[in-house]
């Protein structure tokens, strides 16, 4: 019943992810996880540590995708696991652990975003300069690809929180809209609508982003239907 974040990365619900399945590694099901969760919930630190070590990389990736490149990235990861520790005793197993962990992560990111609005922001990455850092030295293709992904991350960060979160969960993490609805506590139709508008905004931004303009110009065709037609 219980899955891991990595299991969720496996394609569920949409065709694009299915094509990309080979690129991602699916962690085998861990039959002891339920026991581990129960032991951690009962206050066993060693069990909590195992749980943390098992999921921390997935949480880090998800936080990065939702938050972007920020100096407080690691603080947020730590806060997610503090919240997991505090709330684990309330986890009753009605949802998959991974769904629950996503929900905690999304909430921490949102809380962090809210509190960060009242503080000065120190950008770690100049937006849209298209420059590569010295550690990006490598084959041209790799460097270009890295820059494209980095530029795309910047576009993603410009989306409103609600849209960005559902977009990341669906398009990058491969989670079905129904499960996202449970994670963000919104109706499925709302999730689909947010996905639709997120996609439309990103397509528009893509044309204006210098690092990605080439792709946009060559490929053209931003075709993905309205959520109603989507699936």
């Amino acid at each position: 019943m219980l899955g891991t974040l990595a299991e969720l990365i496996a394609p569920h619900a949409y065709p694009d992810a299915a094509h990309d399945a080979g690129a991602r590694k699916v962690r085998p099901r861990m039959p002891d996880e339920e026991r581990l969760i129960a032991r951690a919930a009962a206050g066993e630190t060693a069990a909590f540590r195992q749980l943390y070590e098992r999921h921390r990389a997935d949480v880090a990736r998800l936080v990065y995708r939702m938050l972007g490149n920020r100096s407080d990235f690691e603080d947020v990861i730590q806060e997610v696991f503090v919240q997991v520790y505090r709330s684990l005793k309330d986890f009753r197993g009605q949802a998959k652990f991974s769904t629950w962990l996503h929900r905690v992560t999304v909430n921490v990111v949102l809380m962090h975003r809210r509190s960060a609005r009242s503080r000065p922001v120190f950008a770690d990455e100049p937006p849209g300069d298209g420059l590569l850092r010295s550690d990006d030295v490598g084959p041209d293709d790799d460097a270009e690809r890295r820059e494209r992904v980095r530029a795309f991350g910047r576009l993603l960060a410009r989306l409103a929180d609600k849209k960005r979160i559902v977009f990341v969960l669906h398009e990058l993490e491969g989670i079905a809209p129904g499960e996202i609805a449970r994670i963000v506590g919104a109706p499925v139709l709302t999730v689909r609508t947010r996905l639709f508008y997120a996609r439309r905004e990103l397509e528009g931004m893509l044309r204006e982003e210098p690092s990605l303009a080439g792709i946009a110009g060559i490929e053209g065709g931003f075709s993905k239907g309205h959520p109603e037609e989507d699936e």
Binding site: D16, A17, H19, D20, A23, R24, A60, R61, L62, V63, Y64, R65, R145, R146, R148, V149, F152, G153, L156, E171, L172, G174, R199, L202, E203, L206, L212, I215, A216, I218, E219, G220, G221, F222, S223, K224
Partner: peptide, 15 residues
């Protein structure tokens, strides 16, 4: 589409 192409790379690399 262009977005799908970038997305494919982003799924593998972003973060």
């Amino acid at each position: 589409s262009a977005l799908d192409k970038v997305l494919r790379e982003a799924r593998e690399d972003l973060g």
